[in-house]
Design a protein around this nucleic acid. Structure first.
Lengths: 334, 334
DNA sequence: CTGAAAGCGCTTACAG
DNA sequence: CTGAAAGCGCTTACAG
């Protein structure tokens, strides 16, 4: 059973495929097709269940009504939630999203961009890895709308939407200091991307401003791709230092590993030991006591990304580059 | 800057596009192209960075090397994890995955199938909603490989991979009974899909087998699409009944709502009150005390799905329908 | 050993 | 008010 084509519809209606095409694309009025013909063709399309072949349309027009979304890991709840919000919003505007995970690998990211390119996606939303600058530049030179989100790249002039990681991290430390904490640890990763280094800078700057010494022994940078067990071991070792009275986890999955450690070594979170996690997670609200978190405004990020993409998609001329920095919110729980 | 086409490569190499096409598709030997020509063309392709236009290829061949994955909600960690595993495995075999969420709406599911159809995906992996039977039947009649997973549909003969929900639910209740529980509650949803009704049936059968009465007041069926606050209120009301000494939550998000209630009403989980949650979640391991869960073997489900899809994709003839039921595991924590 | 040509299903500039 | 025809970039049956 072969699918119907525009030719079949044209034959059934006794008109040319040109006429059918105009009607399908809402250009009937503009091309002054008579009302009778419009009605007849629409009825036949309706009855036959004909759906235009999008592949053929893409080949001809060079676009696809598809936006490519590249994230680090779709199974991370931060990305899963952002993806879902972006999908919803794009869908309402007639765009579909296809997404894929880079797993923080340049090669995989590059392959994904190539795949999207050869599928002629109309625009790219990318949570990039370092080293991808050149590939992104090529897309931009090609006049493809590109929005980076979550993490920016230093050597590139691209649209960007993300939270103010430096200031969120700074505020977290400030909060600890005001509660009288003296030995504040940071658990972060060794990936060299801005949204992580900014959290580190915020940590350092806050210590400096409040006259606390920076102590290397209190900073743990775990290797990005390592086993969780390895991470757990390293955190356990860090927590051997019982001077530590507060800790900021730079990502939600590090915080989860950290909480597992605390459970294992039976250290309780309370007045003597405070925790803040970067990026919320359902486990944090449920935890006893509740875990304070830095919350990025997911809804606002998704909305801004889609708005920027759509305005670029509908604009004939190249729009100026925009960087939108959205404040993150510190939620204190106990 | 227009992208290169096969024509450009043919011109540069002074051969026909037929020759280039054969070389790209690894048919050079079979078509006995001379080694010199192969080398020359491959060098030009390499140097120019030429990538074949997949859209054109799809239009011509009618397939796409893309598998469509339709889930209920990609931001649910069960689906996010399955999606990621399937993506990895498919990727290694040269297939890309595009995924999208139905949000349990027949209309959205139907639109997604149509979108995938018009994009000529090669195969479908679907976590279906009831009412989609006819649409799925059309795909199967069209000789498209289709695998349902997580939940099966009653009136349809399709390949299926999923956990044994009845027996997992039965075992959970058995576990409660053996611990001496008498008033075991069930919190589930009102969606009418097999994987949910089977959990309900398992609950009832276990009570029956162990001589416990079935008490309607102990079963809460919350409405699928309602606000979480509403769910929380209903669970709170259920827990007013302080005879209840154990509760099985039929999904992980219901369990999360339930744990929030327990925290609010300051009821502690322990000897007097036991909890089991269906589908694991990071929050459960971290919870104090740890929450026992029914774990579906994600890895095995993903692997089986991909295997079935690939064997259908590579088989010329229609393969017999297979239903693979994989046991779920009850993990007891405290 | 290699190529000319048809055709996949559309859109659109041009013609009348 | 409507249609014939070119062309998007490929693959492949056929011919030599």
């Amino acid at each position: 059973m072969k699918a119907l084509s525009i030719k079949d519809i044209a034959q059934k209606a006794n008109v040319s495929i040109t006429t059918v095409s105009f009607i399908i694309n809402g250009k009937a009025k503009e091309k002054s097709i008579s009302d009778g013909v419009i009605e007849k063709v629409e009825k036949i399309i309706e009855e036959s269940g004909y759906k235009p072949n999008q592949i053929a349309r893409s080949l001809r027009t060079g676009n696809s009504n598809i936006i490519g979304l590249i994230v680090e890991d779709i199974s991370n709840s931060f990305f899963a939630k952002i993806a879902r919000l972006i999908e919803d919003k794009a869908y309402k505007r007639g765009y579909k999203i296809i997404y894929s995970s880079t797993e923080n690998s340049i090669e995989k990211a590059r392959e994904l961009i190539n795949m999207f390119k050869s599928r002629k996606v109309d625009a790219y939303i990318i949570s990039p890895v370092k080293g991808l600058e050149e590939d992104i530049r090529v897309l931009i030179n090609d006049d493809k709308p590109v929005i980076l989100f979550d993490r920016n790249l230093e050597d590139i002039d691209a649209n960007y939407v993300g939270a103010n990681h430096f200031s969120a991290s700074y505020q977290s430390i400030e909060n600890f200091v005001q509660a009288g904490k003296k030995n504040i640890a940071l658990v972060t990763t060794d990936i060299d991307v801005l949204q992580i280094t900014e959290r580190y800078e915020g940590y350092k700057k806050a210590l400096l401003d409040y006259g606390l010494p920076y102590n290397e022994d209190l900073v743990l940078k775990v290797h990005f791709n390592q086993d969780e067990q390895e991470t757990i071991n390293q955190i356990k070792q860090l927590f051997n230092n019982d001077k530590i009275d507060a800790v900021l986890f730079a990502t939600n999955y590090l915080a989860i590993s950290g909480l597992k450690v605390l459970k294992q070594i039976r250290k309780t979170i309370g007045n003597d030991f405070s925790v803040i996690a970067y990026d919320d997670h359902e486990a944090f609200e449920l935890h006893t006591p509740g875990i304070s978190t830095v919350q990025q405004p997911l809804e606002e990020i998704a909305e801004t990304v889609i708005k920027l993409i759509l305005s670029q998609l509908s604009s004939k001329t190249k729009l100026p580059i925009q960087e939108v920095i959205i404040p993150a919110k510190l939620i204190i729980r106990d």
